[in-house]
């Protein structure tokens, strides 16, 4: 009989706590905005943080309260933006496709190694030694810190350089943070030009380090009609915001370090 009293006491305490909590949760229920739940249903739930909020829940709450702009969700893409717009009862705004791009094309045949690195096999490790083991101290190290960071399996190392599969890329920016050389940036638009080099040395020195290097010759700047290309520190950069994707800079580049990225064709295929 000794066992009965403890069982009754624990059960009673549990019951009181349980019933009390259920009553409290009904009596003191805070009305949750139904919109938030609905919008949350439209979002992919990857919690990648590409939108700049703490996760899909945070973005849904910000959307419902009108703080956030629609179309910031990269993994969800245009479909997600349209769904959210339907819930919010708004017009579908312009959705900008995004993808991460590696700003280096220093493949093994175009550049050389400076020394034989045998330490910890991470980009972060190599970059501590003279900025990397490549002749070009700005370039891709190729040990794949970004590959490990990518949740979508979109990055691979091809011929010593990280290459991002635009089709799979959700533009979550994990790789951007992982690259110790800061080579990865997010480009956006339907079709954009992008400079695949980050070397800030003068033309001759850059060319010596890598045959694919940007020499800062300004020809792309002159060719661009929308003022999207600028050269600073001997390096051309394309502003995705202004780029129309006409491809004129791509045609005139003597080093062939500008590439055209057709985000629309790649991501819809």
């Amino acid at each position: 009989m000794n066992i009965i009293i403890p069982i009754i006491i624990v059960a009673a305490i549990g019951l009181i706590a349980g019933v009390g909590l259920s009553i409290a949760s009904i009596v003191m229920a805070v009305p949750v905005d139904e919109k938030v739940t609905e919008i949350r249903g439209c979002l992919p739930g990857a919690n990648c943080g590409a939108c700049g909020y703490s996760g899909c829940d945070g973005y849904a709450a910000a959307l419902a309260s009108g703080e956030a702009a629609n179309g910031l969700c990269s993994p969800g893409g245009a479909k997600c933006a349209a769904d959210v717009a339907a819930v919010l009862g708004e017009e579908v705004g312009e959705f900008k496709r995004r993808a991460a791009v590696v700003h280096c094309d220093g493949t093994c045949d175009k550049t050389e190694k400076l020394y034989d690195y045998r330490g910890i096999q991470t980009c972060a490790g190599v970059s501590l030694m003279f900025g990397g083991d490549g002749k070009c101290s700005y370039g891709c190290i190729g040990l794949g810190d970004c590959v490990k960071a990518c949740q979508y399996g979109a990055i691979s190392i091809c011929n010593g350089v990280a290459v991002i599969n635009t089709k799979r890329c959700a533009a979550c920016s994990e790789c951007v943070a992982a690259c110790p050389k800061g080579l990865i940036r997010i480009v956006y638009g339907d079709k954009v030009a992008d400079v695949s080099c980050s070397n800030k040395d003068k033309g001759a020195a850059a060319k010596k380090a890598c045959k694919n290097a940007c020499i800062g010759c300004m020809r792309c700047v002159k060719a661009c009609e929308s003022g999207a290309v600028t050269v600073s520190n001997n390096l051309a950069t394309v502003d995705s915001e202004k780029c129309t994707g006409c491809g004129k800079c791509f045609e005139v580049c003597p080093s062939k370090c500008i590439r055209m990225i057709d985000l629309k064709a790649l991501q819809e295929a």
């Binding site: 305490i13 549990g14 349980g18 009390g20 909590l21 409290a24 003191m28």
Partner: peptide
């Protein structure tokens, strides 16, 4: 048991 229930209750309140 008591602490867990209590914290939940405090959270609701």
């Amino acid at each position: 048991l008591v602490i867990a229930a209590l914290v939940q209750l405090v959270e609701i309140v």
